[in-house]
Amino acid sequence: MKKTIITVVALSIIGFANAQTPEQRGLEIAKAAEKADLGFNSSSVQLKMTLKNKNGQTSERSLTTRTLELTEDGDKSLIVFNSPKDVKGTSTLTFTHKVGSDDQWLYLPSIKRVKRISSNNKSGPFVGSEFAYEDLSSQEVEKYSYKFLEEKNGLLIVEQDPVDPKSGYTRRVVSYNKNKGYRIEKVEFYDRKNALLKTLTYSDYKLYKNKFWRAGVFNMVNHQSNKETRLEFNDYNFDVNLTDDDFSQVALKRAGN
């Protein structure tokens, strides 16, 4: 009996001394990534979204995204559609929350009205693309539970399980680049039956203000439907100095016109 106790104590001491649990390590990495990106305040960027089906038929949309950094709660963002023509000026405003569902509004210029979007459905595709709304929204640490899997060529592989039961995924497997400010290189998405659904690859990274890594291209491939969506970003502008007023419903209407 005595021996067992000693062994257990000894083992736990070794355990604590050498490594955290995979869960702790995972959370630590996510927090480090968040910290690395802290302090950008606000940004604005133009992007082109290209949808491609199995046969290579494509369809394009062009968008402008503005983001406001918040520390006490999730970031705020505003997306404006510049094309196709019949949705030009349509814009969405999102308040991400660290806990609970995000708030989201859509401005429809054709009827000059702002409509709230059902908050419990955010796992559907974003404008017919392979991105779900939840893939594009601000990645708050609190939205997942974490498990560190392995380290491979300087990449830290972490499994993230969404907290929200309405999420379309059972888990995501994220590769963080330890040497490049914990920027994300790749995310694999597993659907509700835990089969690999999509892979998102980030490329053409650029370092802004000597601190913030931003990818020039997001490429999402759906392995089940063989469809693809590519986001191509122009240069980020970190000097827009946006404020809370630029992320209100009034601003939403204004942005669309």
């Binding site: 196709p84 019949d86 989201q104 859509l106 009827i111 979007i117 796992s123 559907g124 469809k227």
Partner: peptide, 23 residues
């Protein structure tokens, strides 16, 4: 009205959950 139709559709599509989209 074309713009109305397009923007309603955009709103509707943004409101659909995983797996029940219009694709």
């Amino acid at each position: 009205n074309r713009e109305e139709a397009a923007q309603y559709l955009l709103l509707y599509e943004l409101s659909l959950p995983f797996g029940l989209d219009l694709n």
